[in-house]
Amino acid sequence: MSITENKTAAKIIRRRTRFEETWRQFRKNQGAIVGTTLLVFLATLALAAPLAAPEGLDDQHLGRRFQPPSRENILGTDNLGRDILSRIIHGSRLSLSIGFITTSIGLVAGGSLGAIAGYYGGHRDQVIMRFMDIILAIPGFIFAVALVTALGPNLLNLMIAVGLNSIPYFARIIRSSVLSVKEEEYIQAARVIGCSNGWIIARHVIPNAFAPILVQATLRIGDTIIIAAGLSFLGLGAQPPLPEWGAMLSAGRQYLRDAWWMATFPGIAIMITVLAFNLVGDGLRDALDPRLKS
């Protein structure tokens, strides 16, 4: 009898920490592993772009315009004789930065607003969330078009527009996370021992809302990369000669009939990058959200 009891006891004691458990679940997910590998690869490529790319981002060779994929130029050359593979590799810096920066803008601004709304409630909540409702009533991409129109089409304004776009999105997620942990007893306890509101939010509320935020932020990076590329495709974002993938696609569109590779490969690059973020985001969600485990 004592053997069984000891075994049970040992099982209870060796309970994994949340991080260990999440990691264990995450690792079991093949998609998540593929996504992580892809992301590491893309990040390395972006960091080492000048080394990894066979040519510089703006090396023009007018003598070899519109070359189809070949041994010298694996993905072909464009209308100015630039190596497309090299431009895609250089462009990975732009797309990844756009994804991270815009998501960070949305996360920080939206997160703060959502945390304030959820934590304090009352009229602050009302004002902030009604404002978010209003912004959400305008379809996001179209709102970004309006902002870029007003601010002027360039890379910085593109990031601001897409970043602002993400604010209501994060505000809602964080508000509901905050609402769900606010009434927990340990938060009440922290209040009783005299912790300040700011301290409680930073120390207790945010860490507990961490899981949904991490998942949504990862998925959102993929979305913002597509939105930004779409705006650039319309000529409302990064302008040539920047090797932004959406802008490259837009340039390739003009030569679709004669140089299919110009439009094809930047699009595949976008797809692979977004796919990687989606795979990791899905993996994190499955690992972090015990409700969805089947």
């Binding site: 779409g230 495709f233 439009a263 699009g267 976008i270 797809m271 977004v274 989606n278 899905d282």
Partner: peptide, 10 residues
């Protein structure tokens, strides 16, 4: 998954 990752303009 490919569908949600694919830019529609592409």
């Amino acid at each position: 998954l490919l569908g949600v990752s694919m830019p529609n303009f592409w």
